[in-house]
Amino acid sequence: MALPNPPGLLPAEVAFLCEMEQVTIVPRQRLDRLDLLGGTTRPLIPPQKTTLPLWLAILLKRQRRANIVPPPWLYPESLEEILELETKHFQDSFSLPPTIPPTRQADFAGKSFYATTPFVESCTASATPNALPYHWYEISEMLLEAASDDVAQPDRVRQLLRDLREVRLAKIRKEVETLAGDGEGTRLDGVGAMELSESRGFLTGVIGGLRKIDASREQARRDREEEERENRRDNDDDDDEDDEMT
């Protein structure tokens, strides 16, 4: 065992990945374009709104050079709506993630490609208001921490986020009942990155435990499948011989 960490991403790593998300800001000072590894940023001209990666936006916010526009789902009204969806309409599954159409982009050589979910903006001011994106928990924590004066009713938002988290964690725990030792999975659509990181140890532990208990039946099933495959191969061989004969 080289690395003492459990499998999967640690919360800090999840948060690090989340810092790549684009957010909308309103600059307060002019700033020329920056040549970053992830591409160049647009020059900041107040008061034009523009999008920046979260880490840069938080940096500028701390230096009081910009204000962050929170994504539409981070308003009390939207969170209330999501909470209602979560408790009333999706009692057994998670509320749906935002449907983000893949966008056409050009890479450094000018070749166009389609960017999909993690590389498409889901936390800018134009995001879907009634769906939680993949990085909802980390991004809302970080925004509430660094830019709580930009968020409307931060205390109410905090409370709603806590409620949402509780509801969804309870659902993850309930998923356990649908698991079985035969390798059948469970659906985790719409679960956020941090929630996955949080529950990974437990869920994989349950699946592993069930599989260990069910090992005898699994072995029997494997033997049976192996046998069937053998039989089929034999049959195929017979067919081949028939073909040759005719």
């Binding site: 459990p6 640690l10 919360p11 800090a12 948060a15 924590e141 970080m142 921490e145 964690l169 941090m194 990181s197 949080e198 529950s199 990974r200 140890g201 437990f202 994989t204 532990g205 349950v206 435990g209 260990k212």
Partner: peptide, 23 residues
């Protein structure tokens, strides 16, 4: 087995809480 499961179920939220405090 269940003790290990308890530990895993306890560590996950603990790590997230630690991250939030760190923030």
């Amino acid at each position: 087995t269940e003790r290990q499961l308890f530990k895993a179920a306890h560590e996950g939220p603990k790590a997230v809480r630690a991250w939030t405090l760190d923030l």
